[in-house]
Design a protein around this nucleic acid. Structure first.
Lengths: 225, 225
DNA sequence: CTCGACAAAATTGTCAACAAACAGCGTTCG
DNA sequence: CGAACGCTGTTTGTTGACAATTTTGTCGAG
């Protein structure tokens, strides 16, 4: 367990990345206090460097800082996760439409291959592999769109909601629902059909929102049988 | 000249606000270098405080920082301003729809009064007053929507594009174009008509995008008669 | 006169130490 | 017996100085 935290170079940029990784990977759980001195020891960096990293991560929405009270891992509620998904619905549909307009032939091949891999992953029951392909697809669409402002916002939001996304991906039957939605997005983009791509992205994110609500309800009932 | 920069308390939060104000107010022009030691003297704060402020403003998109090369005021190109407006088109329409669903009777009165004030400002030729009301309206809609995630993103983007927005507001005839668009948004929200509100917001931002392109073309031709 | 290397200045990145603020806990007074 | 008060330990906020890096200015060779 100590291996993951001991191998560092004291660079400043890397400390930000290291703490961010620790948060999104779940090594630091929500609401966990982040004491500057402790992190300083863990990552072999000075307290000032850690402090700068915490400020940066605060603006990314991953940590919460209150005056004279320190920093802690920000816990995003279900309500916030839904808000984030609503924003994603708007921006991913924008990116999908732009991507459909600008996609090159090489990128069409790339996307179709991604679609094949996703189908195989779902068929083979490889949930975690499918989850990774999922992220790759969304990121590639953002990149192809050329809308760097939207892409930046989406990347930031992804960090905040990664925990909910992962929980969702783990629910049985979820991949079977999201796979056709993803394939629809791919098809529309590859067909250079902007309006259909936007609609497919909207539908997908709408499905995510519904699944978030359903998953929460299911877990609540699981805790109170 | 020294008067505007000398009155400060060395608080950390206030330094961020002070520098941000200096940037959005145009006191610091785009691409101007922001030397930590200089700012430290100007705002009567330690260099570490200034440094923290610059990191925060970097994540807000107002300043640009490169390794060992310092910080400078970020210059947002026309292309970026259009990208930002596209994102705003998506998110403000979302907020307008949500606001239409949640608006209270008191808020309806508030919005209608804002509309009246805007009409008066345009009728009286008070361009800068109208610009202020414009901002108030957009902010109020965001607040009423209850979509804090979208509101946060929009607030951040506003800071980045304030320069372009202001230049736009100054163009002759622009208020006469945007006023009815704003009134349409107000009407739709006050009528609790979500779909119409979203469409009105989309139309307004689309108009902004067109005006940005037109204004740029006009200025280029002005420089090369 | 231009180009390249070298040296000096300026600026950022890093660190350790000091001061202020807060939280928990025991004591004391009503 | 309960609550307010003050104390102590911990954590953050701030400061100043040092080291590393980049930029600028100068000099000499081609």
């Amino acid at each position: 367990m100590t291996e993951s935290a001991a191998d560092e170079q004291p660079g400043e940029r890397s400390v930000v990345a290291a703490i961010r990784d620790a948060i999104v990977r779940g090594e630091f759980v929500p609401n966990q206090r982040l004491v500057e001195a402790d992190l300083s020891g863990q990552f072999a960096a000075s307290r000032a460097t850690v402090r700068a990293a915490l400020i940066e991560l605060t603006n990314e929405g991953l940590v919460e800082r209150v005056q004279n009270r320190g920093a802690r891992v920000r816990a995003v509620s279900l309500e916030e996760a839904i808000e984030i998904s609503e924003v994603r619905m708007m921006l991913e549909s924008l990116c999908a439409a732009k991507a459909a307009e600008r996609v090159s032939d090489a990128e069409v091949g790339e996307l179709k291959e991604l679609g094949e891999l996703m189908q195989q992953a779902v068929a083979g029951g490889d949930v975690v592999g499918y989850s990774g392909l999922n992220q790759r697809l969304h990121r590639r669409v953002r990149e192809i769109s050329g809308q760097r402002t939207a892409a930046q916002v989406l990347e930031r939001l992804r960090g905040q909601s990664v925990r909910h996304q992962f929980r969702l991906a783990m629910r049985p039957g979820r991949p079977q629902v999201s796979l056709p939605e993803h394939l629809a997005i791919i098809d529309a983009i590859c067909a250079h059909h902007a309006e259909r791509a936007a609609e497919a992205a909207r539908a997908h994110l709408g499905s995510v929102i519904e699944a978030l609500k359903a998953a929460d309800a299911a877990e609540v009932s699981h805790l109170r049988p």
